[in-house]
Design a protein around this nucleic acid. Structure first.
Length: 593
RNA sequence: GUCCUUAUGGUGAAAUGGAUAUCACAACGGUCUUCGGAACCGUCGUUGGGGGUUCGAAUCCCUCUAAGGACACCA
């Protein structure tokens, strides 16, 4: 809780107390317009009925009783509109806050609301042997941002990833690798040579992709092949066929290693930083369906006896009577665990490895219905874990050309999308020859497009708008940061010192920029409470706009202006907050574009 | 058919039950020989329909309409 907000709530409560109202809840918010003050409360409207007088009169009475004269932070308190009480903070407050921002630096905006809490965040979840598509990219973007935000709120955060290394998609790939002569030859060649770099790895991933496409086609076209693939699938589960095992292990390793390359590209910070392609890691916990399946099936069988599940048509199901939702199959009639059973196993394994206070799972919203059923089943089996589990879902990332689907084969790869955006960025930022900066702009364009609106709804990715520095975009924020940095640099050259917190009070108006700075910590808190990164994105854009307007109307690095040190300090604070905020979105802040 | 989600200017979005619904893009017009013009300022235009709750509704409830998703062995 932000100190000043708490103080205003306390003052209001005391005033209400004098009028005979005891309450714990004083709703304190920011007025829609900066000109209406810095904080506002609606208590007069809430209690006017109880007092039998009109809200404005009651508001006046409350204001008379608010003792703010002893508070340097408060300039004035006014009644406005239908009975709002508006608080105006003082120049002194804004000055002090500016000092706080500069002093806190990279830590500004952090809080300790989740101090001591252990939180596991599962996200991304690509499947080995399949493409890392833009849906995974979206999940990774949201998950990484949420992980950073709750970490900034003081929690210990562990990143987890859950990958489908078994299932029919794997069998399709293995089938083609074994059955198709040229694919098989290529596979043997790759298997017998070492993987020295990313390019080598990429070639192998290409081969797996071809094999999957071929297997998928034959599975749908040829009934006999379908039967074979189903047999292979079963053997992958029980590991009974050595030849299949060998194809499987090699392909899985290539796939998993390639995903690590992608996490690098997406800007994740490695947890194990190694040049060795086999040991580089970006997540704290890696979970595989091949492991959760075994345990999940055991759990289902155990609770079948206890009456949670029941047999039906050769499968084990969780009936709609139990869930009051809809019936789902947990172990299919082939005696294999479905995703549902695997998830039960996963929950147990996760908690055994890490005694979390909260387990967050981020997925696409097409599994919302399924997840509700799953949580119901979990309530029967581990009620305490069910309570700690939070499912967050997101919509689809759609490209202008059309809809992305992993089932129809019309898949949009994440790498391909990055490449396309890079082309647009390079065209636009011709001068920038620094490849790492280009990458940072590419990622900010994509990530910001995802994070700027509330999660849950589909995002239509617009190449031009996402890269444009003229609208509400990641690159716009990066540009504003770079410009602020450039102004600060200029001030240094002009020998203008930045204002320090012990400096004297300057007789000057309160700028709109200042009125936004102190709100950042509140925004971070709310984003953390609601697992909603978009609050940060929205705020940063407003801050950047306000700063750019200030920049357009004021000369900042002006030696002849006695207020220049203060303006430079404001610029520094804006830059700092943009950097901190972008970091929470998983976006870098290059000093030059 | 049942259940879930969604519906805000031409387009994409924001809004903790609060004040005159806020931005961006597009369109139109303007500023200034610039600390990074990749700027700034302005004009235009919006809560799907109908009821209800409330001092107050984009937000909560009911209903209709439309779109998307889930609804037994995929994940």
């Amino acid at each position: 809780m932000i100190a000043i907000k708490k103080e205003l709530e306390k003052l209001t409560k005391e005033a209400l107390g004098e009028l005979g109202v005891e309450t714990d809840v004083v709703h304190m918010e920011h007025p829609v317009d900066l000109a209406m003050g810095d904080y506002s409360t609606n208590v007069a409207m809430v209690y006017s009925k109880q007092f039998g007088q009109n809200p404005k009169e009651l508001a006046e009475k409350i204001v008379e009783r608010i003792k703010f004269t002893g508070t340097e932070s408060l300039e004035k308190v006014e009644v406005a509109g239908a009975g709002f009480i508006n608080f105006y903070l003082s120049k002194k407050f804004f000055e002090e806050n500016l000092g706080t921002v500069l002093k806190a630096g990279d830590k500004y905006g952090s809080n300790e609301n989740l101090k001591g809490k252990k939180i596991m965040v599962e996200y991304t979840d690509p499947n080995p042997f399949k493409q890392f598509h833009i849906g995974h990219l979206m999940s990774n973007t949201i998950g990484e941002s949420i992980a950073r935000i709750i970490n900034f709120s003081g929690a210990e955060v562990k990143r987890a990833i859950y990958q489908g290394d078994v299932g029919i998609h794997v069998a399709k790939t293995i089938y083609s690798l074994m059955d198709d002569v040229s694919l098989r030859e290529k596979f043997e060649e790759f298997r017998n040579s070492s993987v020295k770099n990313v390019t080598d790895l990429g070639l192998r991933i290409g081969l797996l992709g071809q094999a999957y496409a071929l297997g998928d086609k034959k599975y749908n076209d040829d009934v006999e092949v379908k039967k074979q693939i189903v047999r292979i699938n079963k053997k992958i589960y029980d590991k009974s066929d050595e030849e299949i095992n060998s194809f499987y292990e090699v392909g899985k390793k290539w796939s998993l290693n390639f995903f690590e390359v992608i996490y690098d590209k997406l800007g994740m910070k490695p947890i194990v930083d190694s040049k060795d392609i086999d040991s580089r890691k970006h997540f704290d916990f890696y979970y595989l369906e091949s492991n959760t399946g075994v345990l999940g099936k055991k759990i289902v069988e155990e609770y079948l006896e206890k009456g949670v599940f029941e047999k039906s048509e050769g499968a084990i199901i969780f009936s709609e009577e139990k869930s009051s939702l809809h019936t789902r199959v947990f172990v299919n009639s082939e005696d294999l665990p479905t995703y549902e059973a695997k998830e039960l196993g996963l929950a147990q394994i996760k908690f055994e490895e890490y005694q979390y206070d909260k387990s967050i799972v981020i997925t696409g919203n097409e599994v919302d219905g399924y997840f509700q059923v799953l949580l119901k089943a979990m309530e029967f089996i581990y009620p305490e874990l069910a309570k700690k589990t939070k499912h967050i879902s997101h919509g689809m990332l759609r490209l202008p050309e059309g809809k992305m689907s992993s089932r129809t084969g019309n898949v949009q790869g994440a790498i391909e999308l990055l490449g396309e955006v890079e082309k647009v960025v390079e065209k636009k930022f011709k001068e920038s020859k620094d490849i790492s900066v280009v990458n940072q702009v590419v990622l900010s364009a994509i990530k910001y497009s995802v994070l700027r609106s509330a999660s849950g709804k589909d995002i239509i990715f617009d190449f031009d708008k996402s890269v444009s520095v003229e609208g509400n975009s990641g690159p716009y924020l990066q540009y504003t940061y770079a410009r602020a940095k450039s102004v600060i640099e200029k001030a240094h050259q002009e020998n203008i010192k930045s204002w320090l917190s012990d400096n004297q009070l300057l007789d000057e108006e309160i700028t709109e920029v200042e009125k936004l700075l102190y709100r950042f910590p509140e925004i971070v808190e709310r984003a953390g409470e609601e697992y909603e990164p978009h609050y940060i994105a929205t705020y940063l854009f407003e801050l950047a706009q306000t700063f750019n307007s200030f920049y357009g109307n004021n000369k900042i690095a002006d030696k002849t202006d006695k207020n220049a040190p203060y303006k430079v300090a404001l610029t520094e604070a804006v830059a700092q907050i943009i950097k901190n905020g972008l970091n929470l979105l998983g976006i870098e802040s290059p000093e030059r574009l």
